[in-house]
Nucleic acid binder design. Sequence first.
DNA 1: CGCCTCATTGAGTTCTGTCAATCCCAGTGG
DNA 2: CCACTGGGATTGACAGAACTCAATGAGGCG
Lengths: 245, 245
Amino acid sequence: MVADTDPVAPLMRKLRARDVVSAEEENALRDSISEIRDFAAGRTVIGVGANVTHSTLVVDGIVSRFKDLSDGQRQIQELHLAGDFTDLHGFLLKRLDHNIGALTRARIALVPHERLRRITEEQPHLARMLWFSTLLDAAIQREKILTIGRRTALGRVAHLVCELHLRLEIVGIADESAFGLPLTQLDLADATGLTSVHVNRMLKQLRDDGLMTFRGGTVTVHDRDRLRKVAEFDPAYLYLERRPR
Amino acid sequence: MVADTDPVAPLMRKLRARDVVSAEEENALRDSISEIRDFAAGRTVIGVGANVTHSTLVVDGIVSRFKDLSDGQRQIQELHLAGDFTDLHGFLLKRLDHNIGALTRARIALVPHERLRRITEEQPHLARMLWFSTLLDAAIQREKILTIGRRTALGRVAHLVCELHLRLEIVGIADESAFGLPLTQLDLADATGLTSVHVNRMLKQLRDDGLMTFRGGTVTVHDRDRLRKVAEFDPAYLYLERRPR
DNA sequence: CGCCTCATTGAGTTCTGTCAATCCCAGTGG
DNA sequence: CCACTGGGATTGACAGAACTCAATGAGGCG
């Protein structure tokens, strides 16, 4: 499951998909990690309202950012994959307005805010890349607002799969036509604003239409073009172009 | 309509609700404005994909950030009020993945990226406040994901009103019990992921229940506590506490 | 005065949710 | 080796929320 033993490897892939990162910057990031922890599936990494002193980088596994309503309904606001900082924003906000939980077994690196502060003071370009990655999160969240607000149930599920597929490819843990996604249908429901029953029906339809199969924690994409068409998926919001420094 | 002739006045109120801002920082922000432009209601401020060289600060009016689907459905991802930067993130992203449009007549200040870069290099605390304001946008967007994904239609409308009420109070253009909101019901529909017909029905219900009235571009809140209860509105996500420097 | 946009309302439809039963399968213990 | 268990997946029948279509009303503006 852990493709790389280097905890910053996925992060570097993610950053290098968008910008040039020097070896010193890579080392600075590696050195910023104070500790690496493993979380069991279902465990809360950071609860809402907690004061945070570390930011957390996903090294392996899938982590969700979510909020619940009083009747118990849950909404996953973003799924974080290997290479994502789940709460870089905690560095400035100091407390979180949502929860962070491990959906699968997850390995998470802790980065003390103190070291982030040093980076912002001493390494402007690296600091800008970190800022950029919070903006990328925001762009992903904006797309989710569009998805949940206006796409049909089928499009929502398809869009989620398209996005996760591409994001996993970027960090090197997805094939062209298949990738591991060890989530339950309830997790997908919480991420798409649907019920698990309806997610099940939509998955069946996608399967019957020959677009994709989700089984045993693995997604197999049979027809990526048509899947993207159903999802109306346009990866522009993921900003996958190298920017000049 | 324009309460203050100082273009940065709403921004200063917004920042000072969360942090201490020095007079020099205030002046630096004022000096960062290169130009102020007026837009008619309905005008596009920045189209999707456009390369941006300026960030835009709303001085007066209401500006929306939105995306459309191919069938013409629109989703407003965030409403920006006086004091909000609509695309501070454009400073790093360089192009936008969404549109920015004026929903009402709007006055907008342009801030060249060059001057923002100088701020990030010379004024770390001010730079951090600007970064903070992009994180605040992200927090507002996360709350919208929850709203659209899991709240009922009635709760969505009520939540939007509660949020706008509080945000307008912060910048000093709302009373305790009333505020101007010159939007159409279609705008509210695009912001809540509903249809205008259904928004109309929800507004009627809120009115009949004695919670609030929306008429002639003005919201009158009759019972703020109950409205917040219906919306399950918790302002924690707006981070309205002064943070120690 | 007439036009145009927006608001309002009713009737009927469709999509998604709810409830509940059944199935599947991996893990456990006998 | 097999029965048992429990969490998820699947399916059907039904309910209900939100949408669509369409007509009417209200108000602002030239």
